[in-house]
Structure formats: C-alpha cells, structure tokens
Amino acid sequence: MPKMPARGGARTLNDIRPGGRVRIRRHHSEGAVRQRLLDLGLMPNVVVTVVRSAPLNDPIELKLEASNITLRRREAITIEVTSEESES
C-alpha cells in the first residue's frame, strides 16, 4: 500500500484499514469529483466505516449511514479524516 508522506500528519481515508471508523474532515478534491463525493453522502462531519478493499487492494468500499459506496484510492487520498469522536 502506498504510504502517505508524514507532512502535517493529517490522515486520509487512504490510510484507514478495513474496519476503521472515522469522521470526514474535509475534501481536497475539486469540481466534479468533489461534488460526486458530497452527493454520495461523504460530507464533512459524516462518520464512515471502511468496509474492505477490493481483491487487488484498490478501490475501497465505504459504509455510510444507509448506503455503501466504492471509490479509488487516488480519490480516497484526497479526503482528510479525523477520529470518530472529534466533532468540529
């Protein structure tokens, strides 16, 4: 699995192992990608669970409140997350 540079120490969805639950902090993507992520419910402050990664490690599957969505790691890496407890 590609490693995140430690700069700033911010974690992204890409770092979360299957089973991990995190809160979305903010998006670093833009335009259509960002809109699609928001539309599918990946809004700031929403809690998501990383369910699994595909057999070849990419893409990953996320569980939201009422739906499951899948996205590639290259998008996951643009979604900054914090621990589940911290509310902003």
Partner: peptide, 8 residues
C-alpha cells in the same frame, strides 16, 4: 476523465 465513485 472522471473518478470511479459508485454506489454498491
């Protein structure tokens, strides 16, 4: 191009 973000 656009990303692969899809509902299962």
């Amino acid at each position: 191009t656009s990303p692969f973000v899809m509902e299962l």
